[in-house]
Structure formats: C-alpha cells, structure tokens
C-alpha cells in the first residue's frame, strides 16, 4: 500500500462520482502525479487495485497522454509552445534561449531536479504568441531575453507558488485578452492543478 490514507480517501470520493469505477482513471492519475510528480509504477498498481482494471491498462492510458509524466519532473516545468502561431512569432528563438540557459533538450530534467524542459503543441495563447508555461501557468508575449530572465528569476527566487498574472507582469509582453480565471491560486508543482481533485494547494 503505497498511498497514504488521505489520498486514498480522496480517491474513493473521485471513484464515487462515476457510474463505473474505471471511468475514474483520468483524475486518479492526477492524484498519482500529485504524489510523486510523475506516474510511478507503485501508483499504477494502487490505481489498478482501486478501480479493478489491470496494471497494464492503467499504464496504457497513463503513457498515452503527454501531461501524465512518465519520468520525475523538476520543480519547474517549462513548456514552450512550438505550434504555428508561436512559430511565426519566433518561438524558435525563445525555445533556443530556454534550451541554452537550462542546457536541456526536449523532455529532459536537469541533475538538480529543478527545470524540466519541453516544447509542446498549442497551449491556446495564439493571440499573445509566443507563449510559455511554467507549471502550466501561462506567460504571453515573450522575447528570448525575457524568457531567460524568467528562468533566472525562477532559479534565484525558487517561488513556492507561481501565478500566471504575476509572471505576466514581470516577464510577459502583449497579452491577448484577460482570459485567466479570476481567483487563480497559481501552481505549487508541475502537476496540472485541479482544485476539484486537490492536486493544487490553497494559496493561503
């Protein structure tokens, strides 16, 4: 039994939301990712027991979606968009500057487990291209230099919580429109924050 009681309790609540146990697989994988920063084999075994499907079926889903991480992720996950809108707004320069600063290539994590770098498909910020996400908190209108500043700041400050609006003020440029949710609490880890499932902590 690798999961703590609190997490198991949460898992049971999630499972009860669905008519069939196996439908709870997606959110349970976020719970697993919240625990270790990635989907560990122990968590796969745990989930398979909870919803009565085999381990390999869990792994099949977990390995299909790229936001379920199969390897431990650093403290900050840097996702730079490489899709068409960002690409024509010179995202390749942003990508190169982030890569140069961190010394990482795609899907790599540094030795200190601090940064993980990935270039991703469209993150829905075309109006403010090029854009980057830090732990899924979006910053728009980036330049190569600002991107390096952002990385340096993360390195020096090591913020416990990153919030999109704060990052935008510090490092962002043109913003498409005010799309962010009003009471965004920010992200405490490179796990997609879904308050319903308690995978992001309260800010206060």
């Amino acid at each position: 039994m690798s999961w703590e009681t609190e997490r198991l309790e949460k898992a049971k609540q999630i499972i009860e939301m669905y008519p069939q146990k196996r439908s709870a697989l997606g959110p349970l994988l976020y719970l697993a990712q919240d625990k270790d920063g990635y989907i560990s084999n122990e968590s796969i075994v745990e989930i398979s027991g909870l919803i009565g499907i085999t381990e390999v079926q869990v792994q099949s889903v977990a390995s299909f979606y790229s936001m379920y991480k199969q390897e431990p992720t650093g403290k900050f996950l840097l996702s730079v968009c490489k899709s068409i809108s960002c690409e024509i707004s010179n995202s390749s320069d942003v990508i190169n500057s982030v890569k140069n600063f961190t010394g990482l290539s795609n899907n790599e994590t540094d030795d200190e487990n601090f940064f993980t770098y990935e270039s991703v498909e469209c993150i829905g910020a075309c109006g403010g291209a090029p854009a980057i996400q830090v732990n899924y908190e979006t910053v728009e209108g980036l330049t190569p230099d600002k991107a390096v500043d952002l990385c340096k700041w993360l390195k020096e400050e090591e913020p416990e919580i990153v919030v999109a609006d704060e990052l935008q003020d510090k490092f962002g440029g043109v913003k498409s429109f005010d799309w962010a949710i009003a009471d965004n609490n920010g992200a405490t880890s490179p796990v997609p924050g879904f308050q319903t499932y308690d995978t992001s902590k309260e800010k206060k």
Binding site: I53, T54, V56, Q57, Q59, S60, S63, F64
Partner: peptide
C-alpha cells in the same frame, strides 16, 4: 478476460 497486454505509449 485477462488483459495483461496493452498498447503502451502512442
């Protein structure tokens, strides 16, 4: 009824 093989990755 013993699904112990599956597609992994994509």
């Amino acid at each position: 009824g013993d699904p112990l093989i599956e597609f992994i990755q994509r």
